[in-house]
Design a protein around this nucleic acid. Structure first.
Length: 469
RNA sequence: GCUUCCUUAGCUCAGCCGGUUAGAGCAUCUGACUGUUAAUCAGAGGGUCCCUGGUUCGAGCCCAGGAGGGAGCGCCA
């Protein structure tokens, strides 16, 4: 009778010993002597490896020769209590088949030796197709999955509906940055209009189209019918941003809620982030422990701290006062009316309050047209959630529900109202107070994994001058 | 886009004031060892010193330009 394949995770946590098992995975290391060989096998189900023990005499020399770091093997054997000290169980192999060989002279991911640093994260970026086979990227990708799943879990449990907003958009008025053009017109000699410009009326959609920079405007449409919704999809920014916190292609979560005001929005954002951190701690303890031990000894403490403490809430105006009376000297001056610099945000989060901060009620001139004006007419009901190390993780606001005020803001900020006639219709027909925010998914993964470069928390990062793989 | 730093073996890095044939650890290969744990021990192979040009009797090292990468800043999530 044939034995079903077990995952490494299932075998390592199994209470049923002394039974026949089948396991398949990739070889991390092999060591031993001419009599006994130890093969560390990993199949991605867990960060931990399964130790396969092979009596060298029972296997042809050619077989064991091909069991090299990076090769793929299928092993049948007996799951037994380990005689060695490093693990509780191991597999005594009876059959080993090499499913895929690896030339160790060429395979770039080799184990590192004692006291060695090993391959760097920068080097691994050049081999992004193989880096999931490392402990680090296995841990990061499992955490990424877990967080994505947790997001759906959170919203589904609370009656939010998942809405798919378009990835190709016909409006370039969203104002969230440079966009990538989508076209099927030929690169050579595209059709031109009479005044010599490219004639997009002959393009696929009959107009100029781009990749989305945000699903928010469409999300608002859905919220004004379904009540509370969220989007979770890819987002594209053609900005030439060269930092460890920006990608040209990233994933964003954008909840939008009818009848929510700014306070409700903040409550949701804070509860949501705490839920996700807790979710990751509960589901991925081994991966987080590895990241904590390997990269950042404060990671687990920081995650627990976020769960256990209220976020500090204050207005932009209060923040400016704190910064102005701060003893620290800033490279850029603090002035009411100008946007805060990274150094200012970092001071508030990392030095002054030493906890996540929610800044609200920014001056209207530095925020988007759709944010609701405060009574005083100077500020808007915006909120930014600032986290240590990564800065703005969430940006959101209560939306302007008054048609007249919204139209006036659009005029002031030169947003073409005719292009957004459909957006304005929500204010024209049964408008309601509503609010929402955007969470950068990779920034969340950055925070939870303790990685320091956003290019290391997405499988295949897209950034200026880089679209390999 | 701006500022700044970096680029030497598969990887992580040394390389003196510009001076013969460019080094180490790990990895890889060969051998030894009957239970290893980032195995150990012995040996071997492995280099377009990022590219182009210049200065010099002589350049890994100095100069100029270019490419790639990191970090900081801007833009933002």
């Amino acid at each position: 009778m044939s034995v079903r394949r077990s995952s490494v995770e299932a075998l390592l946590t199994s209470q049923e010993l002394d039974r026949e098992v089948l396991v398949k995975g990739w070889v991390r290391t092999r060591r031993g002597n001419k009599y006994v060989q130890f093969i560390a096998v990993n199949d991605g189900s867990t960060i931990n490896n399964l130790q396969v023990v092979a009596d060298a005499e029972k296997f042809p020399e050619e077989t064991l020769k091909d069991v090299t770091t990076g090769s793929c093997v299928s092993v049948k054997g007996r799951l037994v209590a380990s005689q060695g000290k490093g693990q509780t169980v191991e597999v005594q192999a009876t059959e080993i088949e090499v499913l895929g060989k690896t030339d160790p002279e060429v395979y770039p991911i080799q184990r590192r030796g004692a006291g060695q640093q090993g391959i760097s994260l920068e080097e691994l970026r050049k081999i992004a197709h193989l880096r999931p086979r490392t402990n680090t990227f296995g841990a990061v990708l499992r955490l990424r999955h877990t967080l994505a799943f947790g997001i759906h879990q959170y919203f589904n449990d609370r009656g939010f509906f998942y809405v798919h907003t378009p990835i190709i958009t016909g409006s370039d008025a969203e104002g969230a940055g440079q966009m990538f053009r989508v076209t099927t017109l030929p690169d050579q000699n595209p059709p031109l209009t009479e005044d010599g410009k490219v004639d997009y009326s002959q393009d696929f959609f009959g107009k100029s189209t781009n990749l989305t920079v945000s699903g928010q405007l469409e999300g608002e449409l859905a919220a004004m019918a379904l009540g509370q919704i969220y989007t979770f999809g890819p987002t594209f920014r053609a900005e030439n941003s060269n930092t460890p916190r920006h990608l040209a292609e990233f994933w964003m979560i954008e909840p939008e809620m009818a009848f929510y005001e700014l306070e409700d929005n903040m409550d949701l954002a804070e509860d949501f982030l705490k839920y996700l951190v807790r979710y990751a701690l509960e589901r991925c303890p081994a991966d987080l422990q590895f990241l904590n031990d390997t990269y950042d000894k404060e990671l687990l403490n920081r995650l627990r701290f976020v769960i256990d403490n209220d976020f500090q809430r204050l207005t932009y105006t209060e923040a400016v006062d704190i910064l102005k009376s701060a003893k620290q000297k800033f490279e850029f001056p603090v002035d009411w009316g100008t946007d805060l610099q990274s150094e200012h945000e970092r001071y508030l989060v990392e030095k002054h309050f030493k906890k996540p901060v929610i800044l609200t009620n920014y001056p209207k001139d530095i925020k988007a047209f759709y944010m609701k004006l405060d009574e005083d007419g100077r500020t808007v009901r915006a909120m930014d959630v600032l986290f240590p190390g990564i800065g703005e993780i969430i940006g959101g606001s209560q939306r302007e529900e008054s048609l007249e005020k919204l139209e006036q803001r659009m005029q002031e900020m030169h947003v073409p109202a005719e292009e957004l006639w459909w957006y304005l219709d929500t204010r024209r027909f049964g408008t309601a107070p509503h609010a929402g925010f955007g969470l950068g998914f990779e920034r969340l993964v950055l925070f939870v994994t303790g990685m320091t470069n956003i290019r290391d928390v997405i499988p295949f990062p897209r950034f200026p001058k880089n679209a390999e793989f």
